[in-house]
């Protein structure tokens, strides 16, 4: 089971003066159950890429296969794909609209054609899994804090039981505790339910801490695609395209320059601690 992108190109406004090649010959395989980070500066093609994965945007050329099926084939169930690949947009709480939290989360499964009862069960399950306490289910979503609203929005997508969950900057604008809560929730969903999670983020620290694979986008192309410690070894190249490495990576290189025998591949706090302590033994 996987999503395969084969020579995918996407051109905005083709044939006009505003023509922009947003995706350039993308070949990727998103394997089942991975936790992937997508990074890239503003305008690098990240958002265009993820909108292809659930068929929201159609490639100008190239093919996308979902579990082996060509999603552009005439008999392919594109509507079904949108629930199997759930997309949580930036600031999803701006899209909450129902009068109660519960109704808002029911909207997706109802739209899938589930009965009221079944949709309700799904909503309960989803709200529980994002850690919201039952006493607020029938409150207005607008009474919640920023972090809680965002969890309601994520629950709304989870209620459709997606196999793949894609989130565009899910922690932007949240306080540090709210950020940790959302990221831990994603880790849990990934570990316990085996959901494939694709996280678009501007925080190199978050990406280093949580994901197992990083896709770096630049000018519509995949610039790097590897495990975090390998990707961040290229920190100079990342800087050249408006990105950076986690703080820890820089720390490691600076300590090296000062003659400390630390492992420059460390990217997380725990790895940094280990290698620094070793250097002092």
């Amino acid at each position: 089971m996987s999503i395969i992108l084969d020579k995918v190109n996407y051109i905005y406004s083709p044939g006009t003066a505003y023509q922009v090649q947003a995706l350039n010959d993308i070949n990727l395989e998103i394997r089942d159950g991975q936790f992937i980070g997508v990074i890239g500066h503003t305008g690098s093609g990240k958002s265009t890429l993820i909108q292809h994965l659930n068929g929201l945007v159609k490639a100008t050329s190239g093919n996308i296969y979902f579990n082996g099926e060509d999603i552009y084939a005439e008999d392919f169930d594109l509507k079904g794909l949108r629930t199997r690949v759930g997309l949580v947009f930036q600031y999803p709480e701006h899209q909450l609209f129902e009068t109660t939290i519960f109704d808002d989360v029911c909207f997706g499964p109802k739209n899938q054609g589930l009965s009221k009862e079944k949709a309700g069960l799904r909503a309960f399950e989803a709200l529980r899994s994002v850690g919201l306490s039952e006493e607020v289910y029938y409150h207005s979503p607008f009474e919640l804090s920023g972090g809680q609203k965002r969890r309601v929005a994520i629950a709304g997508v989870l209620a459709m039981k997606p196999e793949v969950l894609i989130l565009d900057e899910p922690t932007a604008g949240l306080d540090p505790a709210g950020r940790d809560e959302i990221l831990r929730l994603l880790r849990e969903l990934h570990r316990e339910r085996g959901i494939t999670v694709i996280l678009v983020s501007h925080s190199m620290e978050d990406v280093a801490d949580y994901v197992e694979r990083i896709i770096v986008m630049n000018q519509g192309s995949v610039m790097l695609d590897d495990i975090p410690r390998e990707v961040f070894l290229h920190y100079r190249e990342l800087e050249a395209v408006g990105l950076a490495a986690p703080q820890v990576t820089y720390l490691m290189h600076e300590l090296r320059e000062r003659g400390l025998a630390v492992d420059t591949r460390a990217t997380t706090l725990a790895e940094a601690k280990d290698t620094i302590l070793k250097a002092f033994v």
Binding site: G40, H41, T42, Q90, E169, A172, G173, H202, M204, E239, G242, L243, A244
Partner: peptide, 9 residues
């Protein structure tokens, strides 16, 4: 809050 690392810096 909405910027990439370079933009933030």
């Amino acid at each position: 809050a909405m910027l990439d690392p370079t933009g933030r810096r």
